[in-house]
């Protein structure tokens, strides 16, 4: 029963995602691409036309995703649960016969699919404009980030109301541990297990070369995100739903 109700509610969640986040992300992505295209139009060396241009386009989309997609993911996932809790919207939602884990799990899925669809549409539009190019590395790089950061943001949103600040702390902690990893064992352990961003860097380098990705690194990144997502869903059943 609850699944059927939430299935009907997905349409509203999708509409909310598009209105509140999706359109803004799509516009920023389009503006950045347009700017790059215009800069490229200044000379044949930098443009996206022709065989060499399509290789440049492939590198451009990959570099854009690896450099700024975290920003889109922050916009896409921020406040997923915490906003309803702190602003009080959860009170009416969960007076209805609704399982909070199912409600937010589905909301997370809507946002993840929505973000994926935007990137897919973006690469598809570029292919339509400039010609077929290799966007696989771009899509894989985005997918890895979607799983890792999306899962972590979800967990933080269940636990806290300031998840961006908390995530920034985690991110900086990971970077700091990476700096100290050569000298300190605890930092090496932290880098290996707790903060898998360094695996993303490894994977990005391989994607750029067009090399095969090691399964353990892919599983480390996606597993961390998935684990955080599942933990968040479990904690939703135990955490207070309103503040």
């Amino acid at each position: 029963m609850s699944t059927a109700r939430l299935g009907r509610y997905v349409a509203w969640q999708t509409l909310d995602f598009l209105r509140e986040r999706g359109l803004a992300i799509a516009l920023i992505l389009s503006a950045l691409t347009l700017a790059a295209g215009m800069i490229g139009a200044e000379g044949p060396e930098a443009g996206f036309s022709g065989a060499a241009g399509l290789v440049r386009l492939s590198r451009f989309t990959l570099s854009l995703v690896t450099s700024i997609s975290l920003l889109f993911l922050v916009v896409g996932f921020n406040g997923l649960c915490s906003a309803d809790r702190t602003q009080g919207f959860a009170r009416f939602y969960f007076a209805k016969p609704v399982d909070p884990s199912a409600f937010y799990g589905l909301k997370w899925l809507v946002h993840a699919v929505g973000l994926g669809a935007i990137v897919l549409a973006w690469t598809g539009t570029l292919a339509a404009v400039y010609g077929p190019y290799d966007a696989a590395a771009t899509l894989v790089a985005f997918g890895l980030r979607l799983m890792l950061y999306g899962g972590l943001f979800f967990l933080l949103s269940v636990l806290l109301s300031a998840e961006v600040a908390a995530f920034s702390g985690l991110y900086l902690g990971g970077e700091l541990a990476k700096l100290l990893a050569d000298d300190r064992a605890w930092a090496r352990t932290a880098v290996t297990w707790a903060f898998p961003w360094h695996r993303l860097t490894e994977l990005d380098a391989l994607l750029e070369k067009g090399a095969a990705l090691p399964l353990d690194a892919v599983l480390h990144v996606t597993g961390t995100g998935l684990g955080a997502l599942v933990l968040g869903l479990v904690l939703l059943r135990r955490r207070r739903l309103v503040t």
């Binding site: 609850s2 919207f89 009170r91 007076a95 209805k96 016969p97 609704v98 059943r237």
Partner: peptide
Amino acid sequence: RAFVEREGVGYLSELVAIPRE
């Protein structure tokens, strides 16, 4: 929670919070 998730409750909170948009 089990009761609410089974049949729901007609609930009006003191703080009326409905998304403004």
